[in-house]
């Protein structure tokens, strides 16, 4: 038998205690560190605001009394998928720029962490939507994001168009007043010219003045449409101003 009494138990306790203290303090430190990290990560502001469409969809899905019909749920799911498309596009656009900024040290580590979390979340969200879609109709999961991306695009197109076409009334109002202005000044000049030339040839008597002026105005009225059309006429007006 190994001589137990030859071992000095007291002296052996020293390295054992050393090991115990080292390992123990390391574990305590690690667990504290992890906890703090997790707290910091969860207190980071989320990348995206609340997913309203997802909340609506899930609220409707969980409504019991009365049950919401499938058609509304499908519509809500499509809306949710459309919002997801917006988010994916944002994430993709932001990723490269953010990587560059991070490498240069222009942005903090926190931002990158938030971004990575958003990326993970959106992946899960996509998987979830596909599953839900497949539950409604077989194979809808394959096409729901195609439809959703077209919907996002179509919404964008219509917004753009509405914005541009809404300018039409204002523009035409502006042009009408501008045209009237141009016409007015043009006619006035014509009148003045005529009067001047008449004054030059006939030293105008009071009784005659009324009629020719009226006839001049009439003839100008007849012509004015043409005058405004012809670019050269208009240009002269503008040029002389």
């Amino acid at each position: 038998m190994w001589p137990f009494d030859a071992v000095d138990w007291l002296m052996l306790l020293v390295p054992v205690a050393y090991l115990f203290i080292m390992i123990g303090s390391l574990t305590v430190f690690l667990s504290l560190y992890r906890k703090r990290q997790a707290a910091a990560a969860s207190s980071l502001e989320p990348w995206f605001p609340q997913h309203l469409q997802r909340n609506i969809y899930l609220s409707l899905l969980h409504q019991e009394d009365p049950k919401v019909p499938d058609s509304i749920l499908k519509a809500a799911l499509l809306r949710r998928a459309t919002e997801d498309i917006h988010r994916i596009v944002q994430i993709r656009n932001a990723k490269q720029a953010l990587q560059v900024l991070l490498q240069r040290g222009s942005v903090g580590d926190d931002l990158w962490k938030r971004f990575e979390r958003a990326e993970k979340e959106i992946e899960e969200e996509l998987r979830d939507v596909v599953q839900e879609a497949n539950a409604f109709a077989p194979n809808w999961g394959q096409s729901i994001f195609q439809s959703a991306s077209e919907m996002a695009q179509n919404n964008h197109i219509r917004e753009c168009l509405d914005e541009i076409l809404a300018k039409a009334p204002k523009e035409s109002q502006w042009w009408n007043s501008r045209r009237a202005e141009i016409q007015g000044s043009f006619m006035k000049e014509l009148d003045e010219e005529k009067i001047r030339s008449r004054e030059g040839s006939v030293a105008g008597t009071g009784s005659v003045v009324g009629t020719p002026a009226a006839s001049v105005a009439g003839s100008v009225m007849g012509e004015d449409a043409v005058m405004v059309e012809s670019p050269s006429g208009k240009k002269k007006r503008k040029g002389k101003k």
């Binding site: 995206f48 609506i56 009365p66 919401v68």
Partner: peptide, 16 residues
């Protein structure tokens, strides 16, 4: 966005 397994219940109602 919230975690994957939670959502905010919104006060919604459906007109039949």
């Amino acid at each position: 966005m919230e975690a994957a397994d939670t959502f905010t219940l919104l006060p919604l109602q459906m007109d039949d």
